[in-house]
Each structure stands twice: as C-alpha cells, then as structure tokens.
Amino acid sequence: MVGWGIDSILSGRFMKIFRMEGFIRTLERGRIVRFRNITDHVGSRGVAKCVGQDSYGNRYYEDFHGDDCNESFVCQRWVEYADRHDMWQTGRKVPAEWHAWLHRINDDVPSPDNSNYHHPIYKRKHLPNQSGLPGATVPLGDGRHEYAKQFQTYIKSRIYTSWEPQENAPKKRYD
C-alpha cells in the first residue's frame, strides 16, 4: 500500500515533503501513488509547493518544474480537498477566486497575504454549490422558482371587471 520505498525515503524527498507537509500528509502522498491518477505524478515528480489554503481547509498546490512536465498530461495546479477522506470528494467548496486560479483564469494566488490580489471588504462569503440542496438554482419555468411563487400572488393582484349582463340585449350587428 504505502508507496514510500526505502530508497525513496533515503533519497531525501521524503524529508523535504515531511518538513513542508507533516508526517501524515507525507504518508498520504506515498499511499496515493498507486490509486489516484491526479497525484500519481506527485510522488514521482518531487516536491510540490502548497501555495495556499482557503477558508474550507482545501489546500492548493502548484508545480511547474515536474520531471515530465512537458511530456504528458500533467496537472500543474491542483487542489487537495479538505473532505478528501469522505466517500465522495466534491468540488462544491472551491471558492470562486481559487476556482479562477485553478482554471488559469487568474494567475495571482488569491491568498490573503498576496498584495496583488484584491480582497474588497464588501465581498460576500463564498456560497458552496447548492446542487441537490434546497437552495439549488432552478430554471425560470420551474415551479420552485421565485417567479413561479410570485405568479401565485399575481392571481390576487389581477384587476378586471366581470361581465354585467344587460337586460336589453345588444343589437344584432349582422342584420
């Protein structure tokens, strides 16, 4: 299971990662080698730097100097989810600014100590993806949409006058 062989421990890479990430995470790095595609490269590549951590505890890594960087599909920026030990890892808790960094919309690391990245005080806290939850976004025609609920109120606000039957029937127009 554990991917750290004696040779790789002795090579010094183990100690480098151990100093940066701690013992448990270092062990995980080794263990992930066999099973997870994304971090498969990590073990073979060397030491990836953790560039930051968001409010949910997700850790973001960046590595431009991997061994096989230019050769095959490699992940140069990736996220290690805080809930990675759960049954399903989800992307629902990646905040917008980190999403932008991950997907190369933005190169500035949105960590609080980065002065290039602007954190306005009026910025709302990130709302995780609500799919499958009560707060999920619904299309306009859906019955759960805000408009559909409003539409029910329109029935009361409908203004009209009803037909008043006249005693003297109107003249026949076609005569």
Binding site: Y160, T161, S162, W163
Partner: peptide, 19 residues
C-alpha cells in the same frame, strides 16, 4: 379589453333571464 367584461365564474341563465 382583457380587463373588461370578463367572464370569471360559471353562470347559468334562469327562466326569468337573470344569472
């Protein structure tokens, strides 16, 4: 015209012509 002279309930004409 959709606000005026609308039929908003079922009406039945009685024998005396009222509804």
């Amino acid at each position: 015209g959709l606000k005026r002279q609308r039929l908003n309930a079922c009406l039945k004409k009685k024998a005396d012509g009222s509804y």
